[in-house]
């Protein structure tokens, strides 16, 4: 069994307007030392997945089913108290906006010390020294002075470094980063991505990076999982997804983003329509209302949810089109327009 394994995870929230199926049957596996990128737009269920792994999806009301295996332990059926003891120690999380994710009334040091001492019975002085060490490791200058600063006294990049230091305080084996660089400037983003890469190698932890930015994923991820409407619609190695994508939604994402590494295209190729609301996920293939190739499925796309099937060597696709159709479309229709000047 892999270090982290999700089997048919479902997280549903009953609301006044209906059942929100944020995550609807998600399975994947991740080994130590590897990085998984989860890509999706707002409402795709990517953030709820990560909160679900940590047991942080909103308690009482959410219905969670399926299995989450972390290092041989099943977490969905474990007691909340047991999951709590793993949180921060065995698995830790880095959030998007470090300004709102850190408590404004406590110093950065106090917040790291707190994270360390909850799992390690050490005195304040020892924990403080540990915090200073960590701040130095993530590249904060003069850590012995900055440890007593408040989050608002840090710049955005420094705050994200401090956030990373906090997440690393107990040497977690699984690190989940939810949009870790979205709130940052590009030059700072590059620094943080480098830092995360280096730290992962150093700690040999499993890393899940959740983002809407395909560029960020391409920089870090070994494997990529594309989510849409609460389900995985394509999964594969980074080169599978970027060089041989087979799902129309993945094509759409690639066609939507202007790229600096190619000649400027005349027009972007957006996906029509908007991401679905998770209350009313379209029947059949959730993507069908926006899919240009839906007519080629003889109406199957509107009625039946396609299965997530392996196309080649661990590359999984959830689409009614046949493998040959998909490859034909990619090679002949999509790829040329993406690369045309």
């Amino acid at each position: 069994m892999s270090f982290l394994e999700l089997k048919d995870l479902r997280i549903h929230f009953p609301t006044d307007d209906g059942l929100v199926k944020s995550v609807d049957g998600l399975s994947f596996a991740l080994e130590r030392g590897k990085t998984l990128g989860i890509v999706g737009e707002s409402g795709s269920g990517k953030s709820v997945t990560s909160l679900g792994i940590l047991g942080l999806h909103k308690g009482g009301r959410a219905k969670i089913s399926g299995e989450i295996w972390l290092d041989g332990e099943e977490l969905v059926s474990a007691t909340p108290e047991h999951v709590r003891t793993l949180r921060g120690k065995k698995m830790a999380m880095i959030f998007q906006d470090p300004l709102s994710a850190m408590h404004p009334y406590y110093t950065v040091g106090q917040q790291i010390v707190e994270a360390y001492r909850i799992h390690h019975p050490v005195g304040k002085a020892v924990a403080r020294k540990h915090a200073i060490d960590l701040l130095g490791r993530v590249g904060i200058p003069q850590p012995d002075r900055r440890v007593d600063s408040y989050p608002h006294e840090f710049s955005g990049g420094m705050r994200q470094r401090a956030m990373i230091a906090m997440a690393l305080s107990c040497d977690p084996e699984l690190l989940i980063a939810d949009e870790p660089t979205t709130a940052l400037d590009v030059t700072v983003q590059a620094q943080i991505l480098d830092l995360m890469r280096d730290l992962q190698q150093e700690f040999d932890s499993a890393l899940i990076i959740i983002t809407h930015d395909l560029g960020v994923v391409a920089e870090l991820a070994d494997d990529i999982l594309v989510m849409y409407g609460g389900r995985c619609i394509e999964y594969g190695s980074a080169s599978d997804i970027f060089e041989r994508p087979e799902h129309p939604y993945t094509w759409g994402l690639l066609g939507s983003m202007p790229r600096l590494d190619r000649e400027r295209t005349d027009r972007l190729m957006p996906i029509k329509g908007t991401p679905p609301s998770l209350i009313n996920v379209p029947s059949g293939c959730a993507f069908h209302p926006r899919c240009a190739y839906e007519p080629r499925t003889d109406g199957k796309a509107t009625t039946k949810v396609p299965d997530l099937l392996e196309t080649e060597g661990g590359h999984l696709v959830r689409c009614h089109l046949s493998k040959d159709e998909r490859r034909g479309i990619w090679e002949n229709e999509i790829k040329p327009t993406l690369e045309s000047a």
Partner: peptide
């Protein structure tokens, strides 16, 4: 050079300037 590019092959080749 800091802009992440969605191209896996470039991951190793790119000449980065890190401010």
């Amino acid at each position: 050079s800091a802009v992440p590019v969605p191209d896996v092959k470039r991951r190793t080749q790119r000449d980065r300037i890190r401010l």
